[in-house]
Amino acid sequence: MRIALVFPELLGTYGDGGNAVVLAQRLERRGLPAEVLSIGPGDAFPDADLYLLGGGEDGPQRLAADLLIASTLPERVADGAGVFAVCAGLQLLGTSFAVEGDATYPGLALVPAVTVRGSARSVGDAAVRVDGRLVVGFENHGGVTHLAPGLDAFGEVVVGHANDTVSDGFRDGRVWATYLHGPVLAQNPWLADALLASLLGHELEPLASVADDLYAARCAQLTGMGA
C-alpha cells in the first residue's frame, strides 16, 4: 500500500505525520508491504492508495488550499484512492473555511461542508463514537463545521466540540475526516485497522501491542467507561 503525506511542510503542526508511521507499521508488522511518501508543495500528486492531510496554522492552511485546488487529488479520489484528514485537513476538503477575522477562504470542495469561525477555540481532550466504538484524541481549532444534508458525519461527539458539539468530521465513501488531530490513529489502533481494511477490502489479522493498553486507558479516562 502506498501512503502519501500531503504537504507535511504546511500541514503537520501536531505530529500529524504519525498517522503515516502508524498505518505503515501496522501493515509491515503483519507482513504486508507499505510505502510512505511525502508530497511537497509544487510536486505532482503521485499515485497512492491513501492520502493523509494534517493540521496547520492559518497562513500555511491557505497556501495548502491553493495547492490542493490546483492538484489532481479529486481525480485520484474519483479513481478510488482514500483520504484521511484531521483538523485543518478536514476544513480544507470542504467548500470554504474561516481565516483571520470573519473572512472565508475557498477549500477543495471535495465534500459539501462549510467551516465558519466559532465563538471560542475548542481545545482539549475529545472522544467521538464511530460505528458504535469510541475514538479518543485531542482537538485544538477555532472552527464550527456544517455538513450539507446527506453528508454523513464521521462520528457523534461524546466529549468535546468537534464540528458543533454534536457531530464530528465527515465520511464520504473513502474520504474520512475528523477534528481529533495529530496522530489520532496511534491512540485508536482499531480505527487504523478499520481504515486499512476499508482500503484493502478485507479484514486484518489481530495485532496486539501497547497501543491497545493506551486506547483502553484513554477511553476509561475520557468517558469513565471502557472501550
Binding site: 504519525g18 508511521v21 502508524v22 507499521q25 496511534a186 491512540q187 501491542s209 501497547v210 497501543a211 493498553d213 493506551l214 486507558a217
Partner: peptide
C-alpha cells in the same frame, strides 16, 4: 507513559 511506549513501539524501539 503509555503514549510514550506506543510511540516507541511504532518507532521499533524496545520499551
Amino acid at each position: 507513559r503509555l503514549d510514550l511506549a506506543t510511540r516507541l513501539w511504532y518507532a521499533g524501539v524496545e520499551a
